[in-house]
């Protein structure tokens, strides 16, 4: 009981996610600044932002639905933290796993996006309504290629659990090379999920102020920002577990270092794409996802079916 509470709250639960999420935001912002040839924020910047927002007044607009408005940041945060427990990190076993946990993780990672939508929609302000609609439109574009890619790689492993997949790919080294197309597509979809440039269409501060977060302030905004930071860690951990499944069988310490390196690599790729791309329009984003990413994802499924027929007996 005590051990489980420790897992949930301290390591690798909430406290670990809080620190690693804030650190990931710092690395992202610092790298972004260095790539733009400037100094960038000090290491404590995300923590200072978080504490400051916690200490500020939180205003609920008169028009807004108070319950939904106040509840959404907490639901988003807890869904993201819950998804983390089913992802294998530095061993092939996740903290909790059962056959079918891929569906649960994908569902839990979709919840924050839905919360952004509901929070924005029930703010009843023009900017946040437009932002909320864009959040949902974007969701329908990137979610399908992401699901197909992750399911394609589970097809090869012939299992519905992430831990089973990690076990399969560490038993058959080199098989993850089949999923390289899927890795690219899933990474692009992850940028959409995290609302990072070039897919920061729902936030787009130069067009619609701050999108669905326009009316949020103080503590509620702090929880939303923390959710995005933790989503960065959870999303990159998921991609690392599914598409970069090596270094699982080397013991907890070296495995932990390899896990951190994988996450760092993906975070660096996120901030690199943030620097070199400009924002797409929402119709361009939908075109990209449905015309190119979804057919490529189906190609990945085909590839894995053939590979399964030929190689795995």
């Amino acid at each position: 009981m005590l051990k489980q509470l420790f897992i949930l709250l301290v390591f690798p639960g909430f406290l670990f996610l809080l620190t690693s999420g804030l650190l990931a935001e710092f690395i992202d912002r610092r790298l972004y600044a260095r790539l733009q040839n400037r100094q960038g924020p000090p290491w404590f910047q995300p923590l200072a932002d978080f504490i400051k927002l916690l200490g500020k007044e939180d205003i609920v607009p008169q028009e807004a639905d108070t319950t939904v408005f106040r509840l959404m940041p907490l639901v988003a945060l807890s869904a993201t933290v819950a998804a983390f427990f089913y992802i294998p990190l530095w061993g092939t076993e996740a903290m909790f796993s059962f056959n079918g946990d891929i569906i649960v993780v994908l569902y839990l990672l979709m919840l924050p996006t839905l919360c952004f939508f509901l929070g924005g929609w029930y703010s009843r302000s023009v900017f946040s309504s437009i932002g909320a609609v864009r959040v949902l439109t974007q969701l329908f574009a990137y979610e399908v290629p992401l699901f197909i890619c992750i399911l394609a790689s589970s097809l090869l492993a012939n299992t519905w659990s992430l831990s089973g997949m990690a076990a399969f790919y560490s038993k058959h080294p080199g098989y993850w090379l089949f999923n390289l197309i899927g890795f690219g597509i899933a990474f692009i979809s992850l940028l959409g999920k995290l609302e990072k440039v070039p897919f920061d269409i729902p936030e787009a501060e130069t067009e619609i102020v701050a999108g669905s977060f326009t009316e949020y302030s103080g503590r509620l905004l702090a929880f939303f920002r923390l959710t995005i930071d933790i989503e960065l860690i959870v999303g990159t951990s998921l991609l690392a577990a599914v598409f970069l499944p090596f270094g699982f069988g080397v013991g907890p310490y070296i495995g932990f270092v390899i896990y951190i390196l994988k996450v760092l690599l993906l975070v660096a790729l996120v901030s690199l794409s943030r620097t070199i791309f400009a924002r797409l329009r929402i119709d361009q984003m939908i075109n990209l996802c449905w015309k190119y990413l979804a057919p490529l994802a189906f190609l990945q499924v085909l590839l894995n079916l053939i590979a399964k027929g030929v190689m795995v007996k």
Partner: peptide, 21 residues
Amino acid sequence: TPRYDLERFGVQLKGTPRHAD
């Protein structure tokens, strides 16, 4: 702008009064 790099001091430009200090 990056020339003066105000993010060194944690300054960020926000679009909405709800986020601003």
